[in-house]
Amino acid sequence: MLKKRIIPCLDIKNGRTVKGVNFLQLRDAGDPVKLAEEYTRQGADELAFLDISATTEQRKTLIPLVEHIARRINIPFTVGGGINSVEDAANLIRAGADKISINSAAVRRPDLITEIASRFGSQCVVVALDIRLTKGQWEVYIDGGTKNTGYNAMHWSMQAERLGAGELLLTSMGHDGTKNGFALEITEQIAGLVSIPVIASGGAGNTIHFQELFEKTNASAALAAGIFHFRELSIYELKIFLKDKQIPIR
């Protein structure tokens, strides 16, 4: 049986792991290489790595860091942040990324999804959506959550799938870092609309939040950061809990 995945995420700025609340108030969460090794040991099903550095200068550290982590882990590795072209994607894949996550650049130029998918296959392309409930509608934000595009999250999800996305990573900005649980309703709505896997992100605060996500939605995976970084919960403990609740877990 296909298992539900638990994916720890490293948000990287200037070569360090950081974590914020609602995309703001970033604080240091440690050395990304050490965290990557630790999560692999704990039984993570995949590792995500999102570069949130704002400038090209800061991004120069990215490729060596991706290489470094890729050499040390034996689980799938998704890398995102600032990818604007097929060439950017190719460089990261060469450095050891298995999947590429694209967000703002895909909104600005949707053809980028198709271009990366036709070179590396759809299974390589994760389209990440940062979404927020805005005047009664779930809308897509870009540029690290600073700019509202006004796009409807459901429409953009379907369009991303049509263009060749192999997976969607759905982050509810309003839930991010709050530890109040995942955005269940919109996750279920989008998972019901598309036929590619949906990864839910934002809001994980305890084991029950993961249980709810997998019982109440068709999400294929849960992504979390702060709860793991600050040692509130280990992936190992979480998986034992979920197995006990009869959720298919590796």
Partner: peptide, 13 residues
Amino acid sequence: PTGQIVPHTGWNT
């Protein structure tokens, strides 16, 4: 077949 979640992504037995 279409109508199911594809790609088959993740850990399976």
